[in-house]
Design a protein around this nucleic acid. Structure first.
Length: 268
DNA sequence: CGATTTTGACCTGCGC
DNA sequence: GCGCAGGTCAAAATCG
């Protein structure tokens, strides 16, 4: 009887310690997310003010010729190729959560990329990998992938240039399930993010795994995606949904772990 | 053996 | 002009 009581007390102690450490971890994660949210907010504010400035300038009646006279830079033949594909468009950034133990810098987005360089940058100890699209011989699309400074399990993929080919690469079977961009996004914010992927055709190819379907990709899709992204940036609901999704994910994880503890299910 | 990755060297732009 | 940091090249290594 006494042994049984002691055993129960020990088990309870272990559970309390586990919960305490878990609480600590979640608090730290919450702190990190808050920082990320603040960064997002400040970027949104800057974008908004920049847009207002542009609108003001247009209202001032600047001639369309002057506005449109953003002449193509005269390229020096000797200059690097990266300048040839320079565009005024802001590069698209995608955040992808990966397994904490997964230290690869691979973001599955349906395209086939070839790594051509890696660098350690000043502001982030994690190396930045440089990829070039290898689906077409002269495709100008590039991307940079680096781990988030605050959360190593988050990959930040920055896309540069546009693909000059339509077909999307069928994800290889060796890729772990659930590693596509769509699957790695928070659940609620997923809805709108899935729309972006749907526009770009990525989610379809991921889902039709194994089918011999090659999409006749619309060349306008990139423009549609950018339009949709810019509309999201202006949409405060999206930011709120994202924050809610993150909060739900955290609380959901907590509840699940609590349940596992009660049922004595070991964590993976 | 071809494709891909790694990695040190090199180039370029930018701030001082 | 100089030094620094980011981006790219290309030879060697590795993989399938």
């Amino acid at each position: 009887m006494l042994v049984q009581v002691l055993n129960t007390a020990v088990i309870m102690d272990v559970k309390v310690e586990t919960l305490k450490s878990e609480l600590k971890r979640v608090r730290e994660e919450n702190k990190t997310l808050r920082v990320m949210f603040e960064v997002l907010s400040s970027k949104y504010t800057k974008l908004e003010s920049h847009l207002q400035e542009i609108n003001k300038e247009q209202d001032k009646g600047m001639s369309s010729n002057q506005i449109g006279s953003v002449t193509e830079p005269i390229l020096d033949v000797n200059k690097r190729r990266r300048l040839e594909f320079h565009t005024a468009k802001k590069p698209l950034q995608i955040f992808v959560r990966t397994h904490p133990m997964d230290d690869s810098l691979i973001v599955k987005d349906g395209y086939q990329w070839r790594k051509y360089g890696q660098k350690v940058t000043k502001d982030n100890a994690s190396p930045r990998a440089y990829f070039r699209c290898s689906m077409a011989p002269i495709c100008p699309a590039k991307k940079k992938v680096q781990r988030c400074l605050h959360d190593k399990s988050i990959l930040v993929a920055t896309y540069d240039g546009e693909h000059n080919h339509g077909a999307l690469h069928e994800p290889s079977s060796s890729t772990p399930r659930g590693s596509s961009v769509a699957n790695q996004l928070p659940s609620v914010a997923n809805d709108k993010a899935m729309n972006i992927l749907a526009l770009s055709g990525l989610s379809q190819t991921d889902r039709r795994h194994g089918e011999e379907v090659i999409h006749q990709h619309n060349y306008d899709t990139n423009i549609k995606v950018e339009e949709y992204v810019s509309s999201l940036i202006k949409d405060p609901d999206f930011t709120m949904s994202l924050a809610e999704a993150v909060a739900r994910t955290i609380t959901g994880e907590l509840k699940q772990q609590d349940l596992n503890l009660n049922l004595n299910i070991p964590e993976e």
